[in-house]
Design a protein around this nucleic acid. Sequence first.
DNA 1: CCTACCGATCGGTAGG
DNA 2: CCTACCGATCGGTAGG
Lengths: 218, 218
Amino acid sequence: MSTQSSTQPDEGTTAAARHWRVYGPLGLHPILLHAMEAFDEHGYHGTSVRDIAGRVGVTVPALYYHYENKQALLATLLETSIKDVLDRCRAAAEEAGDDPAARFRAMVESIVLYMAHRQGLAFLDTEIRSLEPGNRARYVALRDYLEHMLLDTVEAGAAQGVFTTPFPADAVRAVLVMCQGVANWYRPEGPLTAEEVARRHVLLGLGTVGYRGPAGNG
Amino acid sequence: MSTQSSTQPDEGTTAAARHWRVYGPLGLHPILLHAMEAFDEHGYHGTSVRDIAGRVGVTVPALYYHYENKQALLATLLETSIKDVLDRCRAAAEEAGDDPAARFRAMVESIVLYMAHRQGLAFLDTEIRSLEPGNRARYVALRDYLEHMLLDTVEAGAAQGVFTTPFPADAVRAVLVMCQGVANWYRPEGPLTAEEVARRHVLLGLGTVGYRGPAGNG
DNA sequence: CCTACCGATCGGTAGG
DNA sequence: CCTACCGATCGGTAGG
């Protein structure tokens, strides 16, 4: 894959792909960071550009100097987010090797860790409806790619008899929606660490795909 | 419970509680119906009262004659929705009796049937952020009640050893989010009937809670 | 990056 | 006086 890519100016994506469990500071431009927070609180259409400018401490025209319009803020945030989780999930799968159960565990862990450590970005997934068609198509294509990656693994496991679900596609969709759901309720200051939430969801997800491995699932 | 209740003027809620698998026409006031469609397409803040009025074919003041304001439309829709699924789920659980696995199956089936048959209402769940504090608190309380109903059943099953998940609360949240997810992708004209989607999610949900019943789960 | 603004549209309400 | 609205416009705000 490319070593210098993404809309993010910092080291984020590439380093993340190599060390998929490691999460540093967000490293977003202040305008993007405050746009993210505003969109999370009030939604895209419920957020005014004056609100974002006010949070950042700049004027509205200053905001438009850095970004084309409000839509570009959302599109940049969502593209940054989906590319990061995709890179991390791919790295986790590669590290896990060929065993379907090991790959599944690693992929689910990487996705849930992302949802917890990058909750503010991950929660924006609810705003895809507000993306213009082109931006939306690009985002959905990347999200579908993530789904197909996981589906390939579940189907491989089903072929080997290690996953017993009769509905791999439905099971994968269910697992991904339960991972995405973490972004809706997880709070860093809550009782569970991101790592513990990931561990639990790996086990829940294994149950959802009907895992029958050498050591069972309980 | 009350026999004459809810914000819905028609037979909806009460009859639905008795026949939780039966879905008739929505029976919503035309203004509510078109507000629902607009909110589903563009979100609450992305929908203007003029858009709603235009869809219905009435003037804006006519709309304000029937409903206090835009907020009341969303609040009424969401309250109607959560009360209906709650009534149906309760009826399904009562019909299923005391066995935790039977109750779990019935409750998940009833919830997924609701998500598929009442997709337009169920999808509005993404708009709770746009509810004013009081309306939001009432909605969340009812949704929490649904979660506690399901958790009681899963904990009862865990106590009997029929559900083996070590995390009943996380498992219930995961199951509910995968049910809610049905409202995001289900299309009546698609390949699967609501009943088939419900059947599959019952099995997926049983896997998620680690069901180890007399007949297994595969 | 700011001051000074625009065409239009927002949610909601006036008198009749 | 009531209902079910109407054409027009309110004070403010949207993205630009």
